[in-house]
Design a protein around this nucleic acid. Structure first.
Length: 152
DNA sequence: GCCAACGTTGGC
DNA sequence: GCCAACGTTGGC
């Protein structure tokens, strides 16, 4: 089992929104970065654990936990000409973008701010700090356990 | 709202 | 295949 960090802009979609999903899960779609796509398509598996990170907002940081309930499949938005995520070159025979389904697990008791993450020596190698623009990132087991301890 | 970082596009 | 121009992300 692997650990991940998924970014979302809470103004668009937050952990709160995930926690009240009527269907019990969310389609994590709209990923339009090749490196993130490759991770989604090839590495993210059912049962993997996910840190939900809130970006581009007032209080940036890790809000809580989710887990993967469905592995990669074709992101429906790429075929939807009305969607901002429409991709004209995508066909059913040539799937370009992928999504996964995630379910809510919990809110952290202690929201872990980016400033805090930056202050923890063991977390300095996180992709979050090194590769600012990657919206699907691997998290090591050590990082995961430490973050969970800070958040709980 | 600004701006740095950086991924993508497209001309050559 | 290089690289300039451009667009987007995302922290502050």
């Amino acid at each position: 089992m692997a650990y991940w960090l998924f970014k979302t802009e809470p103004g668009e979609y937050s952990l709160d929104d995930l926690s009240i999903e009527p269907k019990g899960f969310a389609v994590w779609d709209g990923i339009r970065n090749y490196q993130a796509r490759n991770l989604l398509r090839d590495k993210v598996m059912v049962g993997d654990e996910v840190l939900i990170y809130h970006s581009a907002c007032k209080h940036v940081g890790i809000a809580g936990l989710a887990h993967v309930v469905k592995a990669a499949y074709a992101d429906p938005a790429q075929f939807d000409s009305k969607s901002p995520y429409f991709h004209a070159k995508s066909t059913v025979d040539n799937i370009v973008w992928y999504c996964v389904d995630v379910s809510y697990k919990s809110h952290f008791k202690h929201y872990l701010s980016l400033a805090q993450i930056k202050s923890i020596p063991e977390l300095q190698n996180m992709a979050l700090l090194k590769q600012a623009r990657l919206s699907i990132q691997p998290v090591s087991q050590e990082e995961w356990q430490l973050i969970k301890r800070y958040g709980s």
